[in-house]
């Protein structure tokens, strides 16, 4: 098995987390004060501190920071994979940021981004990332597991699914001024998928705050599913009873299913999913079932026909 849990973490590696949060809070306040005089400016990534390094990792070599931050899909900023890094940093203001949590839960509410992640210790997880377009990366995310974040809102027995929504603001996300997809972008998970220990809310990568093009300030990371499930720049989390329809399911019902688990045996109409190009490598690799996370997640789908539930 490729997953490892870090065992020996030196005390010195665990920098003071209060310091990190104070810094963010200060920046938020400063940005708010500055906003009285100046237009808000896009965020510059700063170093993150106080996270547990390599809490989970894989044997594969991480993809370069350059590639991760210049080659990705984020149609809110354009449909070329170089568009997000070209256009997002100039326009995408991510402070202040809050997330509304609603639906089938005991304690709904709107929470500032900092307060949403504060109760859970930050950690680094190096995950494989597999795009449905048959390319892949290895990304050192920093963030928090999703489950403890969700539990705080006390999801009820009718919370069978979780729906996530990206910001809708064509001023900050210029790609939304064209009807390429039915904005805002929406994604969903079954509640047990959302509560799975691998499911992660990333706020940084390579030890820095997430850059706008990668889904700042917080995005989902579901490493055993195709990348488009890992919704970026989340503003709403809803506990719902019925399976939500996602943006890509609407755009192409034959192409994108609700589950979208990485599966080399079920081809997408456009791409064979048997192999993938790891960014930075010449030869294609064989794609692993559940992106190599089968030991942890296969049990979620026991008895399900993964061909029908693609």
């Amino acid at each position: 098995m490729l997953l490892r849990h870090a065992v020996d973490i030196r005390e010195s590696e665990i920098t003071d987390r209060a310091l990190y949060l104070d810094r963010r809070r200060f920046l938020t306040l400063a940005a708010g004060a500055a906003g009285l005089a100046l237009a808000p400016r896009p965020v510059q990534a700063g170093p993150l501190a106080g996270y547990r390094k390599r809490a989970m990792t894989v044997d594969d070599k991480p993809t370069s920071f350059e590639a991760i931050t210049t080659y990705n899909n984020f149609y809110e900023f354009g449909t070329d994979k170089s568009d997000p890094s070209k256009y997002a940093p100039g326009v995408f203001v991510t402070k202040p940021w809050s997330v509304a949590v609603d639906g089938e839960c005991g304690k709904p509410g709107t929470v500032a981004f900092e307060d949403l992640i504060r109760p859970v210790p930050l950690e680094e997880r190096i995950y494989r990332h597999r795009c449905v377009e048959a390319w892949s990366m290895v990304i050192p995310w920093v963030g928090v597991p999703l489950a403890p974040v969700l539990k705080r809102f006390e999801p009820g027995s009718r919370a069978k699914y979780v729906r996530f929504t990206t910001l809708l603001d064509p001023k900050r996300m210029p790609g939304q001024s064209r009807p390429i997809l039915d904005w805002p972008y929406r994604e969903g998970l079954r509640i047990d998928e959302a509560m799975h220990p691998l499911t992660f809310l990333a706020v940084g990568l390579y030890g820095q705050d997430l850059l706008p093009q990668n889904g700042a300030p917080l995005r989902l990371v579901v490493p055993w599913k195709y990348g488009f499930k890992s919704i970026k720049s989340i503003v709403r989390i809803s506990f719902v009873e019925k399976q939500p329809t996602t943006t890509w399911m609407e755009a192409g019902p034959d192409e994108y299913g609700f589950y979208s688990n990485v599966n080399p045996h079920v081809d997408h109409p456009r791409w064979s999913q048997a192999t993938e190009r790891r960014i930075g490598e010449f030869f294609r690799r064989k794609t692993l079932m559940f992106n190599g996370y089968g030991d942890q997640v296969a049990s979620l789908y026991q008895g399900m026909d993964l061909r029908a539930n693609f």
């Binding site: 081809d267 109409p269 456009r270 791409w271 064979s272 048997a274 192999t275 190009r277 010449f282 030869f283 294609r284």
Partner: peptide
């Protein structure tokens, strides 16, 4: 030659199954 590196089987499948 580059994308598929002469994997003729994969190329054949692509031609049959990927309509584009």
């Amino acid at each position: 030659g580059l994308d598929q590196f002469f994997d003729w089987q994969a190329i054949g499948k692509d031609i049959l199954k990927r309509h584009y």
